Amino acid sequence: MASDLTTIPNIGPATARALAEAGIPDAARLRALGAHEAYRALLAAGARPHFIPYYVLHMALQGRPWNDCKGEEKRALRAQYDALLAETGGGAMTAFEAALDQIGLPRPRPVRAK
C-alpha cells in the first residue's frame, strides 16, 4: 500500500520514505505527531540535521508553500530547531557544516566507498 504522506504539500517520495523509516507511515500519524516531533523521529532514525527540512515540515502541515517561512516565524522555528538539536545531540557537526546550515545551503553528502 502506498503511503498517503505525499498527498501533503511539500512532501515528496524521498521524504515520505524517510518518514516511514522513522516510524511515521502515514499522514494521520504525521499530523498527530506534528512537525517538531516528526523531525525528532527523523533525527533518531539517522537523518542528518538541516534547518530547511525542519521548517518545510512545519509549512507542509499548515498547507503552506515551503518557502513561505520568513521573518519572525522563521527565527522562532530556528530557535526551536536549535533547541531540538541541543536536546538530541543531533547538532554535532563540523564548523563548515554549521556555516552551510546557517546560510541555508545543503551540506555535501559523504562519499561512499565502492
Rank of each mutant, 00 (worst) to 15 (best):
residue 112 R to N: 14
residue 86 A to L: 06
residue 42 L to S: 12
residue 19 L to V: 13
residue 46 G to R: 05
residue 45 A to E: 11
residue 83 A to K: 05
residue 95 A to C: 06
residue 20 A to D: 14
residue 68 D to P: 02
residue 49 P to T: 13
residue 66 W to Q: 10
residue 87 E to M: 05
residue 92 A to F: 03
residue 15 T to Y: 12
residue 102 Q to I: 08
residue 53 P to Y: 08
residue 13 P to N: 12
residue 95 A to V: 10
residue 69 C to N: 02
residue 93 M to F: 04
residue 8 I to E: 10
residue 17 R to P: 02
residue 9 P to G: 12
residue 95 A to G: 07
residue 101 D to G: 08
residue 100 L to N: 07
residue 98 A to Q: 07
residue 40 R to I: 11
residue 96 F to L: 11
residue 41 A to P: 08
residue 84 L to W: 02
residue 16 A to N: 06
residue 114 K to C: 09
residue 76 A to E: 07
residue 10 N to C: 13
residue 70 K to M: 00
residue 111 V to I: 14
residue 10 N to Y: 01
residue 106 P to K: 07
residue 70 K to Y: 01
residue 106 P to V: 11
residue 70 K to G: 01
residue 104 G to Y: 03
residue 11 I to A: 13
residue 6 T to C: 15
residue 59 M to F: 01
residue 41 A to L: 11
residue 2 A to V: 08
residue 97 E to K: 05
residue 63 G to M: 09
residue 61 L to R: 01
residue 107 R to E: 06
residue 96 F to T: 13
residue 91 G to E: 02
residue 33 L to T: 03
residue 31 R to N: 01
residue 48 R to S: 10
residue 44 A to Y: 08
residue 42 L to Q: 13
residue 37 E to L: 08
residue 44 A to H: 13
residue 106 P to S: 14
residue 22 A to Y: 08
residue 67 N to H: 10
residue 63 G to Q: 07
residue 62 Q to Y: 03
residue 36 H to R: 07
residue 20 A to K: 12
residue 10 N to F: 00
residue 60 A to T: 09
residue 19 L to P: 07
residue 90 G to E: 04
residue 107 R to D: 04
residue 18 A to F: 08
residue 52 I to E: 09
residue 104 G to C: 11
residue 7 T to L: 13
residue 85 L to R: 02
residue 57 L to N: 05
residue 84 L to C: 08
residue 77 L to V: 06
residue 74 K to T: 00
residue 85 L to N: 05
residue 54 Y to G: 08
residue 44 A to N: 13
residue 82 D to I: 01
residue 42 L to T: 12
residue 35 A to W: 02
residue 35 A to R: 02
residue 13 P to E: 15
residue 17 R to A: 15
residue 37 E to Q: 13
residue 96 F to W: 09
residue 24 I to A: 07
residue 81 Y to G: 05
residue 104 G to D: 09
residue 40 R to Q: 12
residue 7 T to W: 00
residue 60 A to S: 15
residue 16 A to I: 10
residue 98 A to Y: 04
residue 95 A to Q: 09
residue 23 G to N: 14
residue 22 A to W: 06
residue 56 V to K: 05
residue 18 A to T: 14
residue 73 E to H: 00
residue 32 A to I: 01
residue 41 A to T: 11
residue 91 G to R: 05
residue 16 A to Y: 04
residue 14 A to V: 15
residue 64 R to Q: 03
residue 99 A to K: 04
residue 19 L to G: 10
residue 4 D to M: 04
residue 100 L to G: 05
residue 23 G to Y: 13
residue 41 A to V: 11
residue 19 L to K: 09
residue 33 L to K: 00
residue 67 N to A: 09
residue 65 P to V: 07
residue 22 A to N: 14
residue 84 L to A: 10
residue 29 R to D: 03
residue 73 E to C: 02
residue 70 K to L: 00
residue 60 A to V: 11
residue 91 G to K: 00
residue 37 E to V: 05
residue 16 A to F: 09
residue 112 R to S: 13
residue 30 L to N: 01
residue 26 D to Q: 04
residue 63 G to A: 12
residue 78 R to V: 03
residue 11 I to W: 06
residue 55 Y to E: 06
residue 51 F to H: 06
residue 64 R to M: 00
residue 62 Q to H: 08
residue 103 I to L: 09
residue 5 L to I: 12
residue 58 H to N: 07
residue 65 P to Q: 04
residue 84 L to R: 03
residue 81 Y to V: 06
residue 8 I to N: 05
residue 23 G to K: 15
residue 25 P to Q: 00
residue 28 A to D: 06
residue 76 A to F: 01
residue 53 P to E: 14
residue 104 G to S: 11
residue 98 A to P: 01
residue 19 L to Q: 09
residue 12 G to H: 14
residue 85 L to S: 01
